[in-house]
Design a protein around this nucleic acid. Structure first.
Length: 592
DNA sequence: AACTGCGGGCCGG
DNA sequence: CCGGCCCGCAGTT
C-alpha cells in the first residue's frame, strides 16, 4: 500500500451522515485513505510491498548514513516490491547477491553500491503448457552472450514448435526492477525498486542443471548440483512447515522444468515473512534456496484471446498443442483499453476494471465469469483461470531491439474539482459535469452493489457497516472515476491523456492537470500518486521520531548510525531532488 | 562456458 | 546531469 500524505483543508463533516452521493464518495475516499498510512513528514518511501507487517525500513540505499544493524532479516530469495532488507555479512547468499530473479549487473557508476536489474524470464512463444502443468519460465542467462543464444531457441516443451521469447521486466516504471546491494561493515543492505511484472524464472540451480545436462549429456542432476538440489529440497521441505496452504491456490513443483518427476502437485501459497520471526544478529539464514517453482499463470501478462494483440493472433494459431486456460474473461478496461491491458471493448458495466499489477494482486479481475465479485484476493486468484494484462513486449530472435519504456514514468493523478456547494453543477467544463455525474452514478452503484442497500439508509460513516470499505479497494475507486467515461458518451480525448490512448506498451498512468486555485466555496478532491523526492534523511531524526523499524531495532549501547567509510557523496548518484519512482499518494481535500 | 563484478562509454530524457 | 544500458575485461565457478 502506498504511503499517503493527507492534507485536509477546511472542515469536513466526518461524523455527519452524508446523503449527497458526491460528498459520500469524497467521504468514502477520505475514509479509505485515512486508514492508509498517514505521515506528517515527507514520505520518501512508498513500498508497494513493504518488508512485512512491520514497518518497512526507512533508510534508502543511497543515504549517506545507514542505521546500525542490531537485527537482520532473513534472506529473501524472491524480493518483490520496493523492499529493503538488511542481511548479515555472514549470509552467503547475501554476500553473493543471490536472487531468484535473473538479475544482471548494471553499472550505476558507484563502486560502493552494486546495482542489478532484472532480465525477466524466457517464455514459450506459443505459451505452451508442460506435461507437469506448468508454463515455460526459463531463466535468462546473465551473460549477454549466452542470453542471446537463448533467444529464439526451440521451446523445450515436448511437441511444441514454439520458441523462447524473453519477457522483459518492466516492473519499475517501465524499466526493469532493480536491486541494490551495499556492504557496510558487517551488514549488507539490500533495496529493491519495482514490482516484477512477469512470472518467476526457474531457479538458478535448475538452469545450471539443465545446462550441465546439456553439456555433459548425462544425468541432469549430478555432482555439486545434485548436492545443492538435495539441500534445497531439504530446505524446502523444512520451509513447508511455515507456509500457508491454500488448496487450489497455487501450484508448486519442486522438480526442474522439463524434468518433473513428481507425480503429485503440491498446492501451496508462498508467503513472505510467514512467521515474522527474525533471529538476532548475527543470525544467518540458510544459504541455500528452496527448489520451488511458482506456477505463475503466464497468461497474466499475456494478451487475451480476443484482443488485437498480434502475439496471440500470430502465435496461437500456429501452436501445435497449445493449452490455454479455458476462460478468457477479463474485466473490461474501457478507459485503458488497448493501452493498459489489451482488454476487449465489450460493454461491460461491472466494476472495477482498473487493475494494477502489484505483486500478489496480479491483475486479476474482481469478478468471476458470472460477474460475481470475489470475496477476497485468494478466491479471486484461484477462481480466475486466466487474467492477464499484457502490456509487454517480447524479445524474439528477430527483434532484439529493446522497447522503450513509456515516456512518462510518473504516476496516477486523479482530480475532480469545481464542484459547487450543492454538487449539482460543475462550474467548469462540461466534461467535468459529466465526470461528476459519472462519479455519482458509480459511487451510488459502488455502495449499492457492495452493500446491497441504498444511500438513504446510510447513517454513520464510521459505524455503519455500509460504509465499510473493506471490500472497496483503491483500485475500485480509481476505477469508479475512469471506468466508462470514454467508452460511452464522452470524448475519450478530453479525459484521457494521450499517453493512455496510445497503443504503446507498458503501464499507463493517468495524469490530469493540477488542481487550480481553490474557490472559496469549493468542494474538491485531489488525489495524486506521484514520485516522491528522495529525502536524505538525517538518521538522528529517524531515531528521534521513532522510525527505527522492526528490522533494525535500536538497542542500548547500539548507535543508530553507521557511517559508511566507503560512502562518498556522489552527485551523479544521489541527486538531492531527483525524482525517483517511489510513489506516494497525495490527497488534498477541500471542503468548505 | 558461464557467472560475477567493475568500469568506460554512449544515449536519451 | 542522470539513469539505463551496452560492452569489454578479469577473476571466479
Amino acid at each position: 500500500m502506498n504511503d499517503l500524505k493527507l492534507t485536509r483543508r477546511g472542515t469536513f463533516p466526518l461524523h455527519e451522515p452524508i446523503r449527497d452521493p458526491h460528498k459520500l464518495l469524497l467521504q468514502k475516499l477520505a475514509n479509505i485513505l485515512s486508514r492508509m498510512t498517514l505521515t506528517e513528514e515527507p514520505c520518501y518511501q512508498a513500498p508497494l510491498h513493504d518488508s512485512g507487517p512491520e514497518k518497512p525500513h526507512k533508510w534508502d540505499i543511497n543515504d549517506s548514513t545507514l542505521p546500525m544493524v542490531c537485527e537482520v532479516d532473513d534472506f529473501q530469495e524472491w524480493p518483490d516490491g520496493n523492499n529493503r532488507f538488511v542481511y548479515s555479512s555472514n549470509c552467503e547468499d547475501a554476500r553473493r547477491h543471490i536472487s531468484g530473479w535473473a538479475m544482471r549487473n548494471t553499472n550505476n557508476h558507484n563502486a560502493h553500491i552494486l546495482k542489478k536489474s532484472c532480465l525477466g524470464v524466457f517464455v514459450c512463444s506459443y505459451d505452451c503448457t508442460l506435461p507437469n502443468g506448468e508454463k515455460v519460465h526459463l531463466r535468462p542467462a546473465i551473460c549477454d552472450k549466452a542470453r542471446r543464444k537463448q533467444i529464439g531457441k526451440q521451446c523445450p516443451g515436448p511437441n511444441c514448435r514454439g520458441h523462447l521469447e524473453l519477457m522483459t521486466c518492466k516492473g519499475h516504471c517501465g524499466y526493469p526492477v532493480t536491486h541494490f546491494w551495499r556492504h557496510i561493515n558487517i551488514a549488507i543492505f539490500f533495496q529493491a525498486k519495482g514490482v516484477h511484472d512477469h512470472p518467476r524464472p526457474e531457479i538458478k540451480s535448475s538452469a545450471e542443471a539443465r545446462r550441465h545436462h546439456k553439456l555433459k549429456h548425462k544425468s541432469p542432476v549430478s555432482g555439486i548440483i545434485h548436492k545443492k538440489r538435495k539441500r534445497e529440497m531439504l530446505w524446502s521441505s523444512t520451509k513447508e512447515r511455515s507456509t500457508k496452504v491454500y488448496p487450489g491456490f497455487d501450484i508448486l513443483c519442486s522438480c526442474p522444468p522439463f524434468e518433473c518427476t513428481c507425480s503429485h502437485v503440491r498446492m501451496q501459497y508462498k508467503e513472505t515473512h510467514v512467521d515474522n520471526e527474525r533471529a538476532n544478529f548475527p543470525l544467518c539464514p540458510a544459504s541455500f534456496t528452496p527448489q520451488i517453482y511458482e506456477a505463475s499463470p503466464s497468461p497474466w501478462q499475456r494478451p487475451t484471446m480476443d484482443s488485437n494483440y498480434t502475439y496471440n493472433a500470430v502465435h496461437r494459431q500456429h501452436a501445435l498443442e497449445p493449452t490455454f486456460p479455458e476462460n478468457d474473461n477479463l474485466p473490461s478496461l474501457s478507459a485503458f483499453n488497448s493501452s493498459f491491458a489489451n482488454t476487449p471493448r465489450h460493454a461491460d458495466t461491472s466494476y472495477p476494471r482498473f487493475e494494477v499489477y502489484r505483486g500478489s494482486d496480479r491483475g486479476l479481475p474482481y469478478t468471476d465469469t458470472s460477474g460475481q465479485r470475489f470475496p477476497n484476493p485468494a478466491e479471486r486468484y484461484s477462481r480466475t483461470p486466466k487474467s492477464c494484462y499484457d502490456t509487454r513486449d517480447f524479445y524474439s530472435s528477430s527483434c532484439l531491439e529493446r522497447p522503450k519504456p513509456f515516456s512518462d514514468p510518473h504516476s496516477i493523478k486523479i482530480k475532480t474539482e469545481n464542484f459547487d456547494s450543492e454538487f449539482g453543477n460543475i462550474s467548469s467544463l462540461s466534461n467535468q459535469c459529466a465526470l461528476t455525474n459519472r462519479i455519482e452514478t458509480d459511487s451510488n452503484r459502488l455502495l449499492r452493489e457492495d452493500n446491497g442497500q441504498e444511500f438513504s439508509q446510510l447513517q454513520d460513516i464510521d459505524s455503519n457497516p455500509l460504509y465499510n470499505m473493506n471490500d472497496v479497494t483503491d483500485s475500485d475507486l480509481i476505477q469508479t472515476f475512469f471506468s466508462r467515461m470514454p467508452s460511452e458518451q464522452f470524448d475519450e480525448s478530453s479525459f484521457i491523456p494521450s499517453s493512455l490512448t496510445q497503443t504503446n506498451t507498458g503501464p499507463k498512468y493517468i495524469e490530469l492537470k493540477p488542481l487550480k486555485k481553490a474557490k472559496s466555496e469549493m468542494h474538491s478532491l485531489a488525489i495524486s500518486t506521484s514520485p516522491q523526492l528522495f529525502q536524505h534523511r538525517n538518521v538522528h531524526d529517524v531515531s528521534s521520531e521513532g522510525y527505527s523499524t522492526g528490522h533494525i531495532r535500536s538497542q542500548p549501547g547500539c548507535s543508530n548510525v553507521v557511517n559508511d567509510p566507503y560512502y562518498h557523496s556522489d552527485s551523479h548518484q544521489y541527486p538531492p531532488n531527483k525524482q525517483s519512482c517511489n510513489h506516494s499518494i497525495n490527497i488534498t481535500l477541500t471542503y468548505n
